[in-house]
Amino acid sequence: MTAMLESSSAAAANRPGSIRWSKQFGRVFVYGCLALLALVFLAPLLSMLLTSLKSMDEIRAGNLLSLPSTPTFAAWANVWGASCIGVTCGGLKGYFGNSFLIVVPATFISVALGAFNGYVFAQWRFRGDNLIFGLILFGCFIPFQIVLIPMAGLLGKLGLAGTIPGLILVHVVYGICFTTMFFRNYFITVPAEIFKAARVDGAGFWAIFFRILLPISWPIVMVSIIWQFTGVWNDFLFGVSFAAGTNQPVTVALNNLVNTSTGTKAYNEDMAAAMIAALPTILIYVAAGRYFLRGLMAGAVKG
């Protein structure tokens, strides 16, 4: 995973199109393939959206991709504000808020810590630094199921059991492995001379970080934010295990909602709820996807 952001300053060159098939046939082929694949990739989302706008009768009668005859947002409104989850009938909106309360600080703290760590690993050499970095990296790969019980014990000792700060802590701990890797691999591409010069000028540890490094590192900040935001937002396992009652994130509520079927499954509501729960991360990917790629390229795999 390190190579993903492995150094090569040349790689950041911003002209696309390594090779072109110049013939007309080639273009048709390229667009044809892309359009077909895009359709396949979009179909699930599309059918989810269409289904959420239909009435139950229409769902039973029609097919996956037929357009709703009279689009209705009734299902959306219902799952947002009125659906019953257990005995509480307030829809998803409260849980949606919880997710933001968890995601925003967790993302911010883990990205900040990752940036500091990455800076240390990249520019302040010390004995065994690669070994320690490797140890942190391996943390990216730990299956989360095995940490549940010991983590629960730890949170209990810290007095954070069942609270939102507790959940934030968990996400930060397992997030810094990734963010440290992102930043370290990005910062390592910055020429060492810049630091030497800055130090000669008397700039201290933090001055170098904030004045020199941070201004040039926004692509990797974006990558880290996207990565952490989606990871934390989509988490179910930690949320269900470490959050008490009213603190549960939206994924847990969504799971409760789609498993709450009163005889006949209300597919339109399931789909609307799934859409609502997925909206923030989809928006982030659509809005910031270009930065994501640019961030990957900035520390891209070297040629």
């Binding site: 019980i149 629960a152 470490f242 008490a244």
Partner: peptide
């Protein structure tokens, strides 16, 4: 969820 809650003393 119950096991995690009990383990955490909550």
């Amino acid at each position: 969820a119950l096991k995690a809650r009990v383990t955490s003393g909550n």
